[in-house]
Amino acid sequence: MSTASAYLRVSGIDIDVVHKDIKHLHVGVYPPLGRVRVAAPKRFDEEQIRLAIVQRLSWIRKQQKQLQNAPRQTEREMVTGESHYVWGNRLRLKVVERPGRAHVEIDGDRLVLYTAADSSVESRRSVLERWYREQLKQALPPLINKWERELQVTVPKWTIRRMKTKWGSCNRESRHIWFNLELAKKHPNCLEYIVVHEMTHYIEQKHGERFARLMDQRLPDWELRRNELNGAPLAEEEWSA
Results as ranks from 00 to 15, higher is better:
Asp118Ser: 14
Arg130Phe: 07
Ile144Ser: 01
Trp158Gly: 08
Arg124Lys: 15
Ile144Met: 03
Pro156His: 08
Ile144Gly: 07
Ser120Phe: 06
Leu140Met: 03
Ala116Lys: 15
Asn145Ile: 11
Asp118Thr: 15
Leu140Ala: 08
Thr115Asp: 11
Thr159Leu: 11
Leu128Ser: 00
Pro156Ala: 01
Tyr132Ala: 00
Leu136Gln: 06
Tyr114Met: 09
Trp147Leu: 05
Leu136His: 03
Glu122Met: 07
Gln135Glu: 12
Leu151Gly: 02
Lys146Gly: 04
Arg130Ala: 12
Arg130Asp: 10
Lys157Pro: 00
Glu134Ala: 01
Pro142Phe: 07
Leu143Asp: 07
Thr115Met: 03
Glu148Gly: 05
Arg133Asp: 02
Arg124Ile: 13
Arg124Asp: 04
Ile144Pro: 07
Thr115Asn: 02
Glu150Phe: 07
Lys157Ala: 15
Val121Asn: 13
Ser119Asn: 13
Arg130Leu: 10
Trp158Thr: 03
Glu129Pro: 04
Gln152Lys: 11
Val121Ala: 15
Tyr114Leu: 09
Leu140Ile: 08
Gln138Asp: 11
Trp147Phe: 05
Arg130Tyr: 02
Glu148Ile: 01
Thr154Ser: 12
Gln152Trp: 00
Asp118Glu: 06
Glu150Leu: 09
Lys137Trp: 02
Leu143Ala: 06
Ala117Ile: 06
Tyr132Trp: 14
Thr154Asp: 05
Leu136Met: 05
Tyr114Thr: 01
Thr159Gln: 14
Glu134Lys: 10
Arg133Ile: 02
Tyr132Lys: 08
Val127Gly: 02
Val127Lys: 04
Leu128Ala: 00
Asp118Asn: 14
Trp158Ile: 08
Thr159Gly: 00
Ile144Tyr: 00
Val155Gly: 10
Gln135Met: 04
Trp131Leu: 03
Leu143Cys: 06
Val155Lys: 10
Val121Ile: 15
Arg149Ser: 09
Val127Arg: 06
Gln135Trp: 01
Lys146Ile: 01
Thr115Cys: 14
Ser126Glu: 13
Leu128Cys: 12
Leu140Cys: 02
Ser119Asp: 14
Ala116Pro: 12
Ala116Phe: 07
Val121His: 00
Lys157Ser: 15
Pro142Ile: 06
Val153Tyr: 11
Arg124Trp: 12
Lys146Leu: 06
Leu143Ser: 02
Thr154Trp: 03
Ala117Gly: 01
Glu148Phe: 01
Glu129His: 04
Lys146Asp: 11
Leu128Arg: 04
Trp147Pro: 05
Asn145Thr: 15
Pro141Ala: 13
Leu151Asn: 06
Arg149Gly: 07
Ser119Ile: 14
Ser119Trp: 15
Val127Cys: 05
Leu143Asn: 07
Leu136Pro: 04
Arg124Gln: 12
Lys137Phe: 00
Ala116Met: 11
Leu128Phe: 15
Lys137Cys: 11
Ala116Ile: 04
Thr115Gly: 06
Lys157Val: 14
Pro141His: 14
Thr115Val: 14
Pro156Met: 06
Tyr114Ile: 00
Ala116Ser: 15
Lys137Tyr: 01
Thr115Trp: 01
Lys137Gly: 12
Leu143Pro: 09
Asn145His: 06
Ser123Tyr: 13
Arg133Phe: 00
Pro142Tyr: 05
Arg124Pro: 01
Leu128Val: 15
Asp118Ala: 13
Ser123His: 13
Arg124Thr: 12
Ser123Phe: 12
Leu140Thr: 05
Leu128Trp: 10
Glu134Asp: 14
Glu134Pro: 00
Lys146Pro: 04
Pro156Asn: 05
Thr159Cys: 09
Glu150Pro: 02
Ala117Phe: 09
Pro141Val: 07
Ala139Glu: 14
Ser120Asp: 10
Arg125Pro: 02
Arg124Leu: 09
Glu134Asn: 10
